[in-house]
């Protein structure tokens, strides 16, 4: 009986496929960074209800969320050259479409896709920030940008992080579609290998293992970050559980403050 599954090949494929991991990671990192930046802008524009831009971004988000990523990749791949031709025609320039690497089309499609999905997440997280803290920052004389950077974004990040983590994982897996735009990343290399030896199952299983490990690593990293930025909540839990309490009550201006045991009110529930 012929060998139905070549287990050894599953393992030997992995180093070959991993040679293209940097391409996958580059798509993920660039798309995520640019996508998050765009997402923040879209979220802020929609929150501030800036006329014109709000409507434009609402349609854009709806369009991106309502169409498959594969179609968006094709639109980027075929649309950008058309846009460049128009640019050349109206501005009398001579940019050559062949000088644009395939990676660029993929990056644009992924970044816009990320921006659309994350903007909703970020918008919700920004809305969840306690308005009292923003008012306190305003009353201290902080500018809007300082408030955004020092108060709003760090607070919103706590809320947004779990969803951002999931989105990041989707993006890693989504990069397997990049081959349609001509980028040779891990999946594309897998297809090339399988085209040579016809062991499609083994190659795709190797790919599945790599993507799975990448996802697990991402989950662990997200969990560590989550734990770190949530430390103000974690300590709250410890204290309300009664294992670590503030030290002795103190005298303030001649008045004895309440003993530590009564300093924890019912509104300080574990989060």
């Amino acid at each position: 009986m012929p060998k139905l599954i070549d287990f050894k090949m599953i393992l030997t494929n992995i180093p070959q496929l991993l040679q293209y991991l940097p391409i996958t990671l580059a798509i993920v990192a660039l798309s995520m960074v640019v996508g998050l930046f765009l997402a923040l802008i879209i979220a802020l524009v929609r929150l501030k209800k800036i006329p014109g831009l709000t409507q434009l971004f609402t349609v854009l988000v709806s369009f991106i969320r309502g169409t498959p990523l594969l179609v968006q990749l094709y639109l980027s791949y075929y649309g950008i050259p058309i846009a460049l031709r128009y640019w050349n025609y109206y501005n009398h320039t001579d940019y050559n479409i062949n000088n644009i690497p395939a990676f660029f089309f993929v990056f644009i499609a992924f970044a816009i896709n990320e921006a659309a999905y994350n903007s909703e997440n970020i918008r919700g997280a920004l809305l969840s920030v306690d308005h009292g803290e923003i008012e306190a920052a305003e009353s201290l004389g902080m500018t809007n940008f300082q408030i955004l950077r020092r108060i709003t974004i760090p607070e919103a990040l706590v809320v947004a992080l779990p969803t951002l983590g999931n989105q990041f994982i989707s993006l890693i897996k989504g990069t397997s579609l990049a081959f349609v735009a001509g980028v040779v990343e891990m999946t594309a290399e897998g297809q090339i290998i399988a085209g040579r030896n016809f062991r499609y199952f083994e190659v795709y299983l190797s790919l599945a293992i790599i993507y799975w490990v990448l996802t697990v690593i991402t989950e662990v990293i997200v969990r560590i970050i989550e734990k770190r930025i949530n430390r103000f909540r974690a300590t709250q839990n410890v204290i309300t559980a009664g294992s670590k309490r503030p030290s002795a009550a103190q005298t303030v201006a001649g008045v004895q403050s309440q003993p530590a045991v009564s300093e924890f009110r019912s509104d300080q529930k574990p989060v």
Partner: peptide, 26 residues
Amino acid sequence: VGLSEYANFYPGQLSGGQKQRVAIAR
């Protein structure tokens, strides 16, 4: 405001009175 020992506490760890004293110090 008598909160030296609480300098490294987060607001969630303080009583209402202590929070308000931190706000006064701020």
